[in-house]
Design a protein around this nucleic acid. Structure first.
Length: 220
DNA sequence: CGAAACCAACGTCAATAGCC
DNA sequence: GGCTATTGACGTTGGTTTCG
């Protein structure tokens, strides 16, 4: 790999880092949320001991718990990765893998119901509206391999074959990059999902314990 | 401090699925 | 059946960490 390749790699890494960062937008105004600077991905968010309080305060101020039709504050950046919005961090996203249409769901923090959407962003009925993963535009130009009327010379044929190969390699290069990006996103979503479900499980166990205690006291 | 080990991202090839 | 998109497998590269 030469110096040019190296610099290209650094540039791409920077783009990757940017793609995985969180951009927080208000769903109504499209503007940045006030606390966007402190936003994190769901997993990190859940590690925050004040996450619950922060969420409840913000959700309550936005009347989210009384409005099940409130859209999840989840947006998508140019590279297609899902962005988590701080006040709704307990929503999660999931993209299926591999070779399946993109599917997503979001879990309502209070009643546990979830909504599934397809890659067109159309939600099943039952509460929150869906969000969508957009696919980046290709911007790839086609190689013109049409003949010019007269028979091509062997040299022209070799050039055409070479051009076609270059084009194919370039497309596959980009496809591989995109494939890896999606796979990373998928793994991240799974990790987020694990974090949410573990938290949910913990809460349910505590709730069950409390109900058991209550029942025992009444029985006495 | 340099070598070795490890890691993440990359490019390419080949197999496969799905579309026309 | 040909074409294209997707993705697993493999080898390479450059950066980081670990160890003697």
């Amino acid at each position: 790999m030469d110096a040019g390749d190296a610099s290209q790699r650094i540039t791409r890494s920077a783009e990757d880092a940017q793609a995985s960062s969180v951009i927080c937008k208000d769903e109504n105004t499209g503007g940045d949320l006030p606390d966007s600077s402190t936003s994190t991905h769901l997993g990190d968010y859940l590690k925050d001991e004040n996450a619950e309080k922060k969420f409840d305060a913000e959700a309550s101020s936005r009347n989210l718990f009384n409005n099940t039709n409130a859209a999840p504050f989840i947006s998508v950046n140019q590279s297609g990765s899902v962005q988590f919005i701080p006040c709704q961090q307990r929503y999660e996203s999931f993209t299926s893998w591999p070779r399946s249409p993109i599917m997503q769901y979001a879990v309502h923090p209070r009643n546990g119901t979830y909504v599934v959407s397809d890659n067109k962003g159309q939600a099943t009925p039952g509460g929150m509206s869906a969000y969508q993963i957009s696919s980046p535009a290709s911007g790839l130009s086609q190689v013109n391999d049409s003949s010019s009327g007269s028979l091509p010379s062997p040299q022209q044929m070799a050039e055409n074959a070479s051009r076609k190969r270059e084009h194919r390699l370039m497309k596959n290069r980009e496809a591989a990059r995109e494939c890896r990006r999606k796979k990373k996103e998928y793994v991240k979503c799974l990790e987020n999902r694990v974090a949410v479900l573990e938290k949910q499980n913990k809460m349910l166990i505590e709730e069950l314990k409390a109900l058991k205690d209550l029942y025992c006291h009444k029985a006495e």
